[in-house]
Design a protein around this nucleic acid. Structure first.
Lengths: 332, 332
DNA sequence: CTGTTAGCGCTTTCAG
DNA sequence: CTGAAAGCGCTAACAG
């Protein structure tokens, strides 16, 4: 691996301006204790030489890289893409850079990437980490400053979507439409996101004993949803609540392929409101997770730690129920 | 902005192992000229102290950051997301990190980000840069090593999708189905991507004077496609070729809202084959741009420059025509 | 206000 | 084979 071609350094500027290194450093960093005339001379010299200080050298001496890491479980997931976008834009506005790392849903990778990227950055934002709780608790100590998305651990700032509340709203929506047999297509068994959804279901059952809510093991992507179609239809449920929009879309497509009409024969509701949820036929009823906003808020909390500002409180954004075309009254 | 808490340094390890700094450095970097027994002692000490060398310090002394930058015009675009994913995964496999920068379709930002991110990385991958050709030519000199995606400039390695060829294939497909009046929904006027498509149309016209191909100014997203619906229907064309899938989906949706059937009344073909193109109703006929593969190949070319390997040749990947449900014979 | 000096944490000559 | 010393390019005391 070749080394960088050596560029123009601060010494070159100092020589050209006829001053010392420190004066160049001060002048260029806006230190007010520099003769205005010298400042101009230095700036001119720097401009002529197209000089700008080496970020790497500054990072070493300042102990700060102006970069944060974002670790996501899957860069192919639209929700994580939106969160990354939010972080990226918000951080850029504050002159920070973003290092991305995709753990590809591997817990081992996640652990390694979190620590490895942390060392080359000033902090790390862990997006829906898949790590078990005890491991996460242990890990974040060495990661600080850290911001967690959709998880909590110790005193680390958190930004989350309120899955519990939103799923509850979806269940209420279906019940209000008249549904009494609902099936939930579960995501990844042991995942935290899934657990939050199951809690919401539990609470709903307790409150509405007249409604039957059953679970079907499913998965998190389009194919998983499609594969669950037969089980859903066999269950006699009049409405299906999918773990996320991808699953809902897979189910929608497979169910329609089998000649059933949505929502006349079966109502389907998703979760996330990914960009394409509006464009299914009929458009998907879902709960809108403000993913980009989550990214922005995560950055906000990171910046708070970085500049020592009062830490912004933990934030829980409740996804808004978006009623579109895939939910309706149950068949008569 | 707070400084890093100071961690354990190489000196701590040296002290603990009872050797000098240099020996620790050598031992940990697998330099063979170290007494095997000392190597063990050093490794043990390092392990006990949980030491690992500061990437920032190494970057400074080695002149290499083990990081590359990827500059994209829009992180919300599924194609760029896929390219980023490809680069990210391929680079990770080679122990490289990825810094992302989103220029948000701003030419000015793009120029600034390219230079700024380059300084903290070992090279930059410019994804469909929006910069004018002369500016791009000028810019890449100071950016090397650089890889261009969907553009060419000087001798910079390039990976591109063959828009021209693929659009030609789509036109042939429509003609074979019997269409003789085709309308093209153009993207951003002055963009390179649009120019390539117009060239393809020109070539097709020359070869098939019996087919009429007209252009309609449109845009690049769903709403632009939807907004063009009336113009498309008014044009009397029997088939519409959209700048990309988003536009095609917008058009599809709006046309169906107006009670027209696709493809019975109008055929629609897209471009890109974004993940959701399969899931429209009917599924979208399009040309598959292997975006993630483009990312992988871009990394391949970056790595070639980084390790001085023979530079991989420029690569043009031809998108495959994916015939699905939105294209059919023209109405009788 | 400015220059000199000492590092930031590491790798790599250069001696031994 | 190992240690001492010289930097990588920059900032920040510390003197003047």
């Amino acid at each position: 691996m070749a080394r960088q071609p050596k560029g123009v350094t601060i010494s070159d500027v100092a020589a050209k301006a006829g001053v010392s290194l420190s004066t160049v450093s001060r002048a260029l960093n806006g230190n007010p204790t520099v003769d205005p005339e010298l400042v101009v001379r230095v700036q001119d010299a720097a401009a002529e030489l197209q000089y700008s200080a080496s970020p790497v050298a500054r990072s070493l001496v300042l102990g700060r890289t102006q970069t944060v890491a974002v670790v996501v479980p899957d860069l192919a997931n639209p929700t994580f893409q939106a969160i990354l976008r939010g972080v990226s834009r918000a951080a850029a506005a504050d002159e920070y850079h973003v290092l991305v790392a995709d753990s590809a849903e591997s817990v081992d990778e996640e652990r390694v990437l979190a620590t490895a990227t942390r060392r080359r950055t000033d902090g790390v934002i862990l997006c829906s980490p898949r790590l078990a709780q005890d491991e996460l608790d242990r890990l974040i100590g060495g990661l600080r400053p850290v911001v967690l998305i959709n998880r909590s651990a110790g005193d680390a700032p958190t930004v989350r979507a309120d899955y519990r509340g939103a799923l509850g709203a979806e269940l209420e929506h279906l019940r209000a439409l008249g549904h009494r047999r609902i099936v939930f297509l579960a995501g990844i068994e042991r995942s935290v996101a899934n657990a939050a959804r199951l809690e919401a279901i539990e609470a709903f059952r307790a409150q509405h004993p007249d409604v039957e809510v059953n679970e079907i093991a499913c998965g998190v992507d389009f194919d998983a949803g499609a594969a669950a179609a037969d089980a859903v239809l066999a269950s006699q449920a009049t409405a299906a609540l999918a773990f996320n929009d991808l699953v809902a879309m897979g189910l929608l497509s497979a169910v329609q392929d089998r000649g059933r009409r949505v929502p006349a024969d079966l109502s389907i509701v998703g979760f996330d409101d990914i960009p394409f949820a509006r464009y299914t036929t009929p458009p998907l009823t879902t709960a809108r997770v403000p993913a980009e906003e989550i990214g922005v808020q995560a950055w906000e909390r990171m910046r708070g730690q970085l500049d020592g500002t009062a830490a912004a409180p933990a934030l829980s954004l409740t996804p808004e129920l978006i009623v579109r075309g895939t939910s309706g009254p149950p068949p008569a």
